[in-house]
Design a protein around this nucleic acid. Structure first.
Lengths: 182, 182
DNA sequence: AGCTACATGTAAAGGGTTACATGATTTT
DNA sequence: AAAATCATGTAACCCTTTACATGTAGCT
């Protein structure tokens, strides 16, 4: 049940239409919870029916822009969700599986894939670092108000994860390169 | 399409019945691709129909143990999958979302949740390190044959990820603790 | 009027999760 | 024989993914 709460958070940060939300997801919240426009429209409908958000009172029609904002009940629901006990989502990482499969059956093409992934993760890392430079310059970090500090921790989670994969992939390529893989 | 290949890998390492596979998943492959017995039985049926595995020729009946082994076609399919181009799975991490929601709406209960997750990740890390001590003692690492080295990289992925979450959660708790969170 | 971009939505397929159902085997 | 346990399997639900469909607005 993360998507509806991700949407509530995004709408609290700024009221938006469905497509606008989709685009904002693509470059911020979506880093930790990606969603397509289909998912977002469906959830917007449910959230509105549940009375947690509302669309601006306009005659609704198919192709017309609908702007949503969070109602007090939505804010309350989000606040409750924040403190709920929820176990961490289990990891699902196919690349690691493929390495294990390669250990069992051999794998000629794997090194190339590892290099490709390394490049993808390096690119994502660079994007995160660029956002950090732009949104969290040194002086703001010293200021000590809580909100930017928390948002910075969110970004830091992404940075650290990408750094980790870069490191792991590099080390794995070294091991793989030590002798030819049949 | 990772689950069928995870199962093929496990069956190559050792032919097993469905329930046995489920238990083995719980303590090795499942660390990177968890699966319940329902998923596993469903996939075993599909893999058998596809001619990638076979069950020992016994009169099949509902409650009787069925042992599966990989056929040559299955090994070939796995080998092909290993080298295929597949983008990394996008991250989905609710805890990071919750932190971002807390930045927007406040969050009294979050610190407790962060501490609970910290403990869970510390426990998982300890389990991985125990496995490493048991299965990859120093002398085997020096030997230089490839297969254990690759399997060690798999375990190392888990260790590094858990270490990372421990570090991130610790740092986040510090930021959160600097002042009270409303 | 036709074209393009914008915006919302529907449909179908597949995987994961949870709860439940049933047959076989072992234990008491 | 009853109970507990092992083992396989069904069913329903939800979420995600992909492809497609429809309506609106602005421009030429």
């Amino acid at each position: 049940m993360s998507l509806p709460h991700a949407i509530l958070t995004a709408l609290l940060e700024r009221p938006s239409s469905g497509l606008e939300l989709t685009r904002r997801f693509d470059k911020s919240i979506g880093f930790f919870w990606p969603a397509t426009h289909q998912q977002i429209y469906r959830e917007l409908g449910r959230l509105e029916q549940a009375g947690l958000i509302r669309s601006c009172p306009q005659p609704p029609s198919r192709g017309r822009r609908k702007e949503y904002e969070v109602l007090p009940a939505g804010r309350a629901a989000l606040l409750e969700w924040v403190g709920q006990a929820q176990d961490p989502k289990p990891v699902r990482e196919p690349m690691v599986l493929r390495l294990r499969a390669a250990a069992a059956v051999g794998g000629r093409g794997l090194a190339e894939e590892l290099r490709r992934h390394l490049e993808l993760h390096e690119r994502q890392l660079a994007e995160y670092l660029e956002i950090e430079r732009r949104d969290f310059p040194a002086e703001r970090l010293a200021a000590g108000d809580r909100r930017p500090a928390l948002q910075h921790r969110v970004l830091r989670a992404g940075i650290g994860l990408e750094q980790y994969w870069v490191e792991w992939l590099t080390g794995t390529l070294e091991v793989l390169g030590e002798d030819s893989v049949d």
